[in-house]
Design a protein around this nucleic acid. Structure first.
Lengths: 330, 330
DNA sequence: ATGAAAGCGCTAACAT
DNA sequence: ATGTTAGCGCTTTCAT
């Protein structure tokens, strides 16, 4: 347990022959330091291995360099490995801006406590419910936040979301370009807004292409999904099935095997999301991956903007890109 | 963005007619304060909504109340929803001790930086590799840590782990008590130590019971698992299959359907872990759940001990309990 | 472009 | 059982 004495800003200052104020200015990049001096200071910082003390800094600056994220966002749901990826990417995106992600237990009390103690500079939320009380809580106290997923129209639009309808449209256009005209949609029952948006995206795109929609919705459980997949394949044996998730696409793969059909040849399938399931499929799945790194990056960027306290900006939609696999003919 | 002035310890002190040191003592429970005074102080604290400033505290006490956890521990692997549960429970367990969990990006650099800046009091690691370099890094700098999973014998034994062999033994004993003597083990190829320990637990238990072992190992992928499950059921149609995970048990359920067998009647199955997959099975699965809440609680307790800087203690094994479902006959 | 002074809120150490 | 003193390491503000 040998802990050597801390290297302080004063150590750096005297070693570099400047005042400690100058070191501070160099470190925070305020710009009001000569280039040569800055160079020298930075060198000494590296040599001595100096790192600012977050506590001392926060005491003075009222900034902690920390963001709270409620982990309960991530349900115990396979569908939510993407959520896990979001946290990881958020941690990375925060890191490049000198920020750290602090986990918090669920509930409003934890939010209040973190705000009062000033342990964090703000919050990132995901998986918002309608008129989510957490938004009101942080807004009331004037604490910055940013969300993955939309806030209400009367709230601050500090959010980033994926364009659900567009994802489905990309998939449809891809299979239609490949000559398919019977395009079935296999999706989830409308519990969340994105379920509805994906379905609407399907219906609108089909209409605009002059095609006849046929959609099958299911609960997000193994058995119902398998049944729905079989149903989607059955009927008039449609040439293409556009799924609302990679998991549903996997279910179609399974149903295809049962029917002795080969995916990519007898039957064309697409997914959405590119989660663990989708990545493991063979033949490789044509899908529309949610670019989590980009999402996290934009959420973090928006958070930094919120921190500045500028006027409200519109929310931001991310339109993912389709990646072509062998499931639509290679 | 209206932020009222911070309530400080001085506000509390003067409102309670004591010195600010007394308030500090009450808050940290040093015990050297009269009962009445403490009562009064606590009341004022509540009334004013006072919360300590973590920065100011850490500046003086050299304690941050924060623990770092590397999120990369959780692979993008369905098997690892349990890992996600661990972080969640760790956050909760930390919370009851006034601690917070800070996520960190993977890599040794992040560890070094967190230590130098003193942003955390220590680390929690999971999913350790053999002779994990991170243990050496924190040990060299005398920084406290605690692990879920074992460290090397020459390192500090600051760990908590589950007794893998015991979990399998519980399952075997359960089915044997119910009259089965042909007990097949369906497990994973030996990539991690727990794979080996579960297999060994199976073999040892079978031997001690005077039964003939028969084990089938598979890769952790959908198709191989399905094949292995079918193989386990086939052969001499064993009466019981003890699986190394709930996912494998789910594969057996699937194979049973294919063969027209009813789980719980024609065939008896057990799992290990009680993850998302296991919870969703029907008929309900007899399994040995990993008690993540307990694991996290013990890891956190050990961490607090490490923080004190006491002599090394042995690592701690957790022996989970079997829960009986319908898959072994109801 | 740089420096000096002041103090953020708290707790360790030393009184009493 | 409680109070006083000093200072943790940094940044803000105000000089120069």
């Amino acid at each position: 347990m040998v802990r050597q004495r801390r290297v302080t800003i004063d150590d750096v200052a005297s070693a570099a022959n400047v005042s400690r104020q100058t070191v501070s200015n160099v470190l925070r990049g305020t710009g009001r330091v000569g280039v040569e001096t800055a160079e020298r200071v930075r060198e000494v910082v590296d040599r001595l291995g100096y790192v600012v003390h977050p506590g001392a800094r926060s005491l003075r600056s009222l900034r902690t360099g920390q963001i709270a994220f409620p982990l309960d966002e991530l349900a115990m749901d396979q569908r939510d490995v993407l959520g896990l990826e979001f946290v990881r990417e958020l941690t990375a995106a925060a890191g490049t801006r000198g920020y750290h992600v602090l986990l918090m237990t669920p509930g409003m009390d934890a939010i209040a406590e973190l705000i009062r103690s000033a342990r964090v500079d703000g919050f990132v939320f995901a998986n918002l419910r309608r008129n989510d009380p957490r938004i009101a809580a942080v807004t009331d106290r004037g604490v910055p936040f940013a969300c993955m997923g939309r806030t209400e129209s009367f709230q601050r639009q500090a959010w980033v979301d994926i364009a659900n309808g567009e994802m489905v449209r990309l998939a449809i256009e891809h299979v239609v370009q490949r000559g398919h005209r019977e395009v079935t949609y296999l999706g989830y029952n409308l519990t969340e807004y994105w379920d509805a948006e994906r379905l609407t995206g399907y219906e609108d795109t089909m209409k605009s292409l002059g095609l006849v929609p046929r959609s099958i919705l299911t609960d997000n459980d193994e058995a119902p999904m398998a049944r729905a997949a079989a149903e989607a394949i059955g009927g008039d044996s449609p040439s293409a099935i556009v799924c609302a998730s990679d998991e549903l696409a996997a279910a179609v793969y399974g149903a295809a095997v049962d029917r002795g059909l080969t995916v990519g040849r007898d039957l064309v399938v697409t997914g959405v999301g590119f989660d663990v399931v989708g990545r493991g499929l063979s033949p490789s799945l044509t899908t529309v991956p949610v670019p989590m790194k980009t999402v996290a990056e934009l959420v973090m960027r928006r958070f930094m903007y919120e921190l500045e306290g500028g006027p409200d900006l519109p929310g931001e939609f991310i339109v993912p890109e389709l990646i072509v696999g062998a499931s639509t003919g290679g």
